[in-house]
């Protein structure tokens, strides 16, 4: 049974009406109270919501065991398919390889450096990222996601309230990362999965908003639940979709991949 805001206020109106209706009202309001008891529970705190979220995606314990993650999938837009492999070694490096018709493009990020190499755009050699971009991308090095054990990681969370995202009621949380960067999380009020993350990229005196929608959550043998579909708006009715077919957890990763090829 879902929340029905209209009913409760109607009940209030009646209570304010004539006294002779009180008797019937009593039974009605009893029913109302039963029916809506779970909507009247006290407001949840940011911590409660984060805890429920982490529980929903497999629990802190399972996530804290995650040291590396390799996600294999395809990105597609309007019939164009690109093979994408994302590799994260917890707090050491992340690398995204995008294969477009035989051309390998990549982005590498470490705690101190980063490189972009997109020959598909005519680039002929890897280019170092700016210090701002490196700083901005640091949350990508967290293989466990920023919300798992967030306090220990030096992040803070503020509950903004509830907001409807694409018709689904969500808790809106503002996560301020240790680096000072903030991200807004919309957590589905029913499933406690993250439905959307909105971040503002600030670099070189400029700001750009990035909105990422997550779905197709699946439980892996390691006990963690991950979104297998990541979607970024690309235009009216068109999304840039990253559909993940395979996730490997804690596979050994050679750290040399976090340096650009010579």
């Amino acid at each position: 049974m879902k929340q029905l805001p209209g009913f409760r206020s109607t009940g209030v109106t009646i209570q304010n009406n004539k006294k002779e209706q009180m008797k019937i009202l009593k039974s009605v309001s009893l029913l109302l109270v039963t029916a809506f008891s779970f909507t009247t529970i006290k407001a949840q705190t940011a911590d409660e919501i984060v805890n429920k979220h982490v529980e929903a995606i497999g629990g802190t314990e399972n996530w804290k065991k995650v040291n590396s993650m390799i996600m294999t999938g395809t990105m597609s837009v309007q019939g164009m398919n690109l093979d994408v492999i994302t590799t994260v070694l917890h707090n050491k490096g992340s690398r995204q390889d995008v294969n477009a018709m035989g051309m390998n493009n990549y982005q590498i990020l470490t705690p101190t450096e980063g490189w972009n190499f997109f020959p598909i755009q005519g680039q002929q050699a890897p280019e170092a990222m700016t210090a701002d971009d490196v700083k901005d991308g640091q949350s990508n090095l967290d293989a466990q996601g920023s919300l798992v054990d967030y306090k220990a990681k030096g992040h803070s969370v503020e509950l903004i309230g509830k907001e409807e995202i694409d018709g689904t009621e969500c808790h809106k949380l503002k996560l301020t990362l240790k680096s000072g960067k903030s991200e807004t999380y919309f957590i589905d009020a029913k499933t406690f999965y993250v439905l959307r993350v909105v971040s503002v990229k600030k670099a070189n005196g400029q700001e750009a908003e990035l909105s990422t929608t997550l779905s197709n959550y699946q439980k892996l043998p390691e006990g963690v639940v991950v979104a297998m579909s990541i979607s970024v708006p690309f235009g009216p009715g068109v999304n840039f979709d990253y559909s993940i077919s395979k996730v490997e957890i804690n596979k050994a990763i050679d750290e040399s991949i976090f340096k650009p090829a010579k």
Binding site: V77, D166, G167, S231, N239
Partner: peptide, 27 residues
Amino acid sequence: QKLSPSNRKGYNKVMWNQRSNPPKTAK
């Protein structure tokens, strides 16, 4: 063609460009 449909509650739409997939071109 495989499309990337949205999954929101209510009305959804997805743009199909009325095309198939592009050809493979030589490396």
